[in-house]
Computed example of a mutant assay.
Amino acid sequence: MKVPFVDLSANYHSIQEDVDAAVHRVLNKCDYILGQAVKDLEDNFAAYCEAPYAVGLDSGYSALELILRATDIGPGDEVITAANTFMATALAIWSCGARPVLVDADPATYTLNPALLEAAITPATRAVIPVHLFGQPADMDPILEIARRHNLLVVEDACQAHGARYKGKRTGSLGDAAAFSFYPAKNLGAYGDGGMAVTRRADLAEKIIWLRNVGQSAKNLHTLKGFNHRLDTLQASILLVKLPHLDQWNAARRQSAALYNQLLAGAAVVTPQTAPQVEHVFHLYVVRVHHREALIQVLNEAGIGTGIHYPTPIHMQPAFQDLGYPVGSFPVSESYASQILSLPMYPEISPEAVAYVCDTIKAFVKNGPASST
């Protein structure tokens, strides 16, 4: 049996007729830049996130960056985020001229540990970016309470958490603003790059609209020094087709995650924990294992794809050595980075495929890593 890490082809073929028709509508209309599909997607995605405003952009990275820029965060400012996130989170802060300040992960959920947040705040702190990692929302209530006491902006990095809920509320509606990525492998993925900024603030949405389109508040009137970070109309048309399926696809992911948990019980593998009052959407199904490289080899030989998200914490990346954090600064993130392994996860994965992955892992654990040599 072959089990890919993700199967984009299966997803496309399940909605091929509708996707092809949507693309052809754009091609016939020729409204390729900020066309009607972009506005329709913004309206529909804002409603889905239970937020008033959404602005289509070219990536989740751009969404984070433009949210920060729209609030005038820049040189001399600090923005707190998680040590164990994708590089784009920290790069968005750096792109504004601000300094990323890192906080370690919660040992159970892998999201930013609220108990460590207040100690990271300084007079230069302007914002906090909690990351909804792997599809699980961060523990937002204590984060929001601390942020409000210190008058800090809260920006959700929801790039892996389309449709997730925290205490009944959608990601995207929890903080002052949120960033989503539509990278093809995401729970709601385009067929190229794309992103969305979601906010409850009209002033913030307006500035992001200007910033994304070379600073124009009206045609040829450049109110701000802006950028070219527009969402492509073709991608928006595809996402409009996919959005109504998102809850169903997320439910399928949760079902597969539950099966993984059941079949891996007692197999010397640490399976994901879902926090109370959270609806996890399992963008990734991440376990912790010993002898990870040997297990990856065995899984690869069995035709099973895997990933590692993420093998190197932000402060240990060469690009961010200038932050000055020595090894050992974030023990949870550093320890887990050598153990985490992402197993195949996508809405169309079959129970038989999940069982095959689990049987292969259990055989590895039973026989020991030496059996793979």
Rank of each mutant, 00 (worst) to 15 (best):
Lys39Gln: 14
Gly328Thr: 05
His229Pro: 04
Ala161Leu: 02
Ser342Val: 10
Glu348His: 13
Val6Ala: 12
Asp232Ala: 13
Ser237Asp: 06
Leu34Trp: 02
Pro244Lys: 02
Gln255Asp: 12
Ala236Lys: 01
Glu334Ser: 04
Asp232Phe: 13
Ile121Val: 10
Asp72Tyr: 15
Gly56Arg: 07
Ile308Gln: 03
Leu41Asn: 07
Ala257Leu: 06
Arg25Asn: 12
Leu153Asn: 04
Ala83Cys: 09
His229Cys: 13
Arg288Lys: 15
Ile33Thr: 12
Ser181Ala: 11
Ala127Lys: 03
Leu91Asp: 15
Arg165Ile: 06
Arg69Leu: 09
Ser335Arg: 10
Ala205Glu: 04
Gln262Thr: 14
Pro311Met: 02
Ser217Asn: 13
Val214Asn: 15
Asn213Gln: 12
Gly76Met: 01
Glu42Ala: 10
Lys242Ala: 08
Val79Glu: 00
Asn44Cys: 15
Ile15Lys: 08
Thr125Gly: 11
Gly189Glu: 12
His283Val: 05
Gly305Asp: 10
Leu264Glu: 09
Gly192Arg: 10
Phe134Tyr: 15
Gly266Cys: 00
His132Ser: 11
Tyr336Gly: 00
Ala267Lys: 02
Leu91Gly: 15
Gln321Val: 00
Leu239Ile: 09
His315Gly: 00
Glu301Trp: 09
Val6Tyr: 12
Asp139Trp: 06
Thr274Pro: 08
Ser237Met: 04
Tyr166Val: 05
Leu243Tyr: 09
Asp203Gln: 12
Ser181Phe: 02
Ala82His: 11
Thr89His: 01
Ala355Phe: 01
Leu284Phe: 13
Arg148Trp: 01
Tyr53Val: 07
